[in-house]
Design a protein around this nucleic acid. Sequence first.
DNA 1: ATTGACGCTTGATGCATGTCAACTTGAGTT
DNA 2: AACTCAAGTTGACATGCATCAAGCGTCAAT
Lengths: 252, 252
Amino acid sequence: MTQRKVISFDTIRVACKNCSLSQLCLPMGLAQEDIERLDSIIKRSRPLHRGDHLFRGGERFRSLYVVKTGSVKTYAPSEEGGEQVLGFHLPGEIIGLDAIDKSCHACSAKVLETSAICEVPFQRFEELAASIPSLQHQMYRLLSKEIGQDADMLLLLGKKNAEERLAAFLTSMSSRLSKRGLSPTDFYLSMSRHEIGSYLGLAVETVSRLFTRFQEDGLLRVDRKHVEVLNLPALEMMAGSAPSSTHQQRSN
Amino acid sequence: MTQRKVISFDTIRVACKNCSLSQLCLPMGLAQEDIERLDSIIKRSRPLHRGDHLFRGGERFRSLYVVKTGSVKTYAPSEEGGEQVLGFHLPGEIIGLDAIDKSCHACSAKVLETSAICEVPFQRFEELAASIPSLQHQMYRLLSKEIGQDADMLLLLGKKNAEERLAAFLTSMSSRLSKRGLSPTDFYLSMSRHEIGSYLGLAVETVSRLFTRFQEDGLLRVDRKHVEVLNLPALEMMAGSAPSSTHQQRSN
DNA sequence: ATTGACGCTTGATGCATGTCAACTTGAGTT
DNA sequence: AACTCAAGTTGACATGCATCAAGCGTCAAT
């Protein structure tokens, strides 16, 4: 993710109307004046650093968070230090939507690299949305999109084998980065192999072996966190519901 | 699910204000008059029968659907007839939330048994919600709840073994039925073993073997679709993130 | 009752992937 | 540079569950 660009403090404090993400984020489809009203309720703190938490499971829900720069992971912590990674969040993506229902966070959110985050106090947001139909609509869309993505993930975990899972992860990263104006074929992953494995329901070792294999097969060039995709169509093919080779498994 | 009760045609046509589900469903928290406004936009068709579709993947999104009686499955159809079951929906639960974003259904919804369904035209609903803050809030809560449940499911598919999955499925059914005034320990499953397997990411045979084993272990009494839970606490323990026995697997 | 189709169960076998262990590499610290 | 520690890689081995195959109960239609 980290595209090695220098970020000035001014850059991260930009208002929504000047933010390059506005077409992916809450302001999408809003009139200029409504964007400014939205802007007025958003809190922008100084950048957070790797390992900082936006919130932890069990805490009271007050705000949604939007990634402005950097990346964040959400995860469900379990007793013995184990954790299930639930998602990786790139700029423009909203975090905390699952907590509206119980007004309490069920998962934790941790910053993966130095990141700028917009905080959206939910109660004020809700009041605002009631008076701006297009904002309300956009919020429904974003909630709905999250549900759709979770369904894709259920399909991945329920039906796909290890190879298909990693291919799906890489093509998903590729397309999301591309939407944000970054290269779809050359990027840095801000998360560890362990976190990728947890997210995909695989052991670290399996992830590692697959990276090696993909490289041997000429699909990727990998150096630590740096990934160059050499054959994106092949990866996409692999990620699709098509089975890996002649023998598919889990045809249940 | 089917609790073998006779359902009159009057029963299924009841207005929201007289519906026993109103505390689980959209009307929750609404004032009497607002319930009536909501009621006025809802369409109630005659009962659907096993195998009927509410909608199919690819169709244009127009309405949300709420189960009034009976049960529905949602699934992602794949080319070769294979399908991934995404969820089972009981009375009071809303179907189609994932389609708001793309205004097009990504999955299909099929009735599992004779069922009464309320149709909620979304555009009219959205207009109504804009003028009823508590309805808007309830909608946010329902969307959020769905996201939270999907996260639970990701955890199940990512980390739990077959035994834990089936135990989680059974305890979930138990508690949901219980919330609807039915027995938490004696119920009929309206879905096939195959569908349960697909939902849980397991082969039919594995599901079948587990039912047998649970019965041998005195946790259940099973006869076809009829399940009697004999030791609910034990099932809940199993379903929790606790590993099945001394050796846990997938500690990634 | 007979038939056929389908869903379910049970057993035998194999494989993908988890687990364990050892080693390598890289980044940060002194 | 030397040291430390976490992260990643690779190999050897173990196993849970998918797969294949066969048989059985149930239900509906005839």
